[in-house]
Design a protein around this nucleic acid. Structure first.
Lengths: 339, 339
DNA sequence: ACAGCAATAACAATCGATTGCAACAGCTTT
DNA sequence: AAAGCTGTTGCAATCGATTGTTATTGCTGT
């Protein structure tokens, strides 16, 4: 580092080999610290490399060795359910995945994909750039995922497991989660239940179904639905448009996500409605921000951190050739201030 | 797609060439849709490729063309200031960067780096895997960054620009931000100022300095410091340990980050202190969650979204060979409910 | 009928590192 | 002294696609 000169920049192993007076093979082995080359030459070559700031080209190495040290994290944006990578749920799970993956010494390649053609997933797994793939959400692409899973092992998907399904998933039981939310509201005396959010995507509709199960079991009428997109710039406006009728007809609200719950609580607070005094509200996800709002959000935990760890663990086992089953986690109620 | 068979999986361009009865060169050009090959053969080859689900190996293509279509996003974790990728500030900026980069058709490679040796950055830029690099934060690695910037152009750094500095930065004027926070508190009548957070990293110490500037100009004593790590599991406990003395000696609190501000507000609320009635609080960053708390956080906006866009724009200009200057953004006060 | 040209496709070098195999020196063993 | 090791190193094929150069074909113009 004190050497400000080092002008002859070395571009490849061959040049290093030339000035070291050995063959490229020897340089390669020396740089890889293989005992096959004499300790002395090895040290000499490494010193030379250091001196010239030489670093082997990873592209070439990876082409040759057929492994990349890179895990792909892919977000399929089917039916435009999540517009952006900056969606808080995705960012949260990504953070945990990133921690777990980098701790294993792997790099991460992030792709947002709009499945507009048949082969978006093939394009990714066959690109030859990834040692494994993590998919966040099945969107409406189960068929494409199944097709690829039948021949491509190192892939783990955040989502739900269906009977007979080939691909390995990690996810939470959404219906059970909805049920828990409903039960919690009913337990505190709510009798006029409402559900805020969309139910277009399967995971969301299951949440509603579970929520309705709770009402049904308690002998209450089916919860009223208030449609709000989960990932939209207009979420706030959509909620605002419903808020009067929510106030009029509900005393317990199950929201399909924490974000929606939070905006609902805010909208209610703005109208002077006490939460949970007048209307109780539950979220879904247990994002970090659920704990940071005032009042803190009562919500259904997806155990995102644990789920992310499980996904990564499963993926590495699959990369190592093991076959691991899908994992369904049980949601738990996190009781805070809003219900 | 109706074709369930297609058993002879094609591994490379040569095999495709063989069954198409042409040379590899022609296949390559056909797949690249070059007019150099007859429209008819081109179509035939493309059909064949589609039929067999063949996709050219990206590693090889990138090795050959010397460009990767990948942008690296790197977080140097010097002096362990940000423990994890899941840090909310980082996640927020990453989300915006990811949106901007993927909109340009590039992929993202995420690396968390602990700069334990001299050459962590060289290792990244010389790996031959990236078309450009975005660095989030300078940490204590300015020297290493400067060294690399002197010869590696496609790199943009989130942080501050110092006179004579080579590397291109995008960032906010932290001292001005601190000043604005201080002025805001003073304007609402606060006279006993306190500053919560750490001042070890330069960007944080500047925030404190600006905050102190405001006090000095107003003829007030220098703000008292309460030390709290910005990215720590024990942040809550650290704040709790200070909260009594904060309550006793301050009526206006500037926090070094939104996260700390939020926990401070919460700790005060738990003790029955009215915010901003008894004590006013300002944050710093304007993370999305600042708007979602109740009460919503008054804070200093870093314009993270705009900053991310600017970083990406600057990077692509640099990749295209243009030289773009550093950009310093002016912080603005976002007045909400806590001050 | 032949030079000249355009269109098309084959040939072969190239990107940069890895690695199986062969070669060689120096040594011991019989 | 021949045979057999062992420890090192060189040689050359290989990963899979790209692309400049060359060769072939068929056609036009004179």
């Amino acid at each position: 580092m004190t050497d400000g000169a080092s002008p002859p920049r070395i571009r490849n192993i061959a040049e290093l080999a030339r000035i070291a007076g050995v063959s490229t093979g020897t340089v390669s082995r020396a740089l890889a610290n293989k005992t096959l080359v004499n300790a002395e030459t090895r040290e000499r070559i490494q010193a030379l490399a250091r001196e010239h700031g030489f670093r082997p080209n990873q592209m070439a190495r990876r082409l040759r060795t057929q492994q990349t040290g890179v895990i792909g994290i892919v977000v399929p944006l089917g039916h435009e359910m999540r517009q952006h990578l900056s969606d808080p749920f995705f960012m949260t799970i990504l953070g945990h995945l990133a921690d777990a993956i980098t701790e294993n010494g792997y790099d991460i390649m992030l792709s947002r994909v709009i499945p507009d053609d048949e082969e978006w997933l093939e394009r990714i797994v066959d690109s030859g750039m990834l040692d494994g793939v993590l998919l966040i959400g099945q969107s409406d692409q189960s068929a494409a995922i199944e097709r690829v899973a039948s021949r491509y092992r190192p892939m783990v998907v955040w989502g739900r497991h269906m009977p007979g399904q080939i691909h390995c998933t990690v996810g939470v039981n959404n219906r059970a989660g909805g049920r828990i939310a409903g039960d919690a509201l009913i337990a505190r005396g709510c009798t006029r239940l409402g559900f805020v959010g969309e139910i277009d995507a399967p995971e969301f509709s299951e949440r509603y179904l579970g929520f309705a199960d709770a009402a049904h079991t308690a002998g209450l009428p089916a919860p009223q639905q208030f449609h709000v997109h989960v990932a939209s710039d207009v979420m706030k406006e959509e909620i605002a448009s419903h808020i009067a009728s929510i106030q009029a007809s509900c005393d317990g609200i199950g929201a399909v996500s924490d974000l929606i719950a939070m905006h609902t609580v805010r909208a209610l607070a703005d109208r002077g409605v006490a939460v949970p005094g007048d209307i109780a509200v539950t979220g879904f996800d247990d994002l970090p921000l659920a704990e940071q709002t005032i009042p803190r959000l009562t919500t259904i935990s997806q155990s995102i951190g644990a789920g992310a760890k499980a996904m990564v663990a499963a993926l590495f086992e699959r990369i190592a050739g093991q076959d691991v089953p899908s994992l369904e986690m049980q949601p738990v109620l996190v009781k805070r201030d809003t219900a």
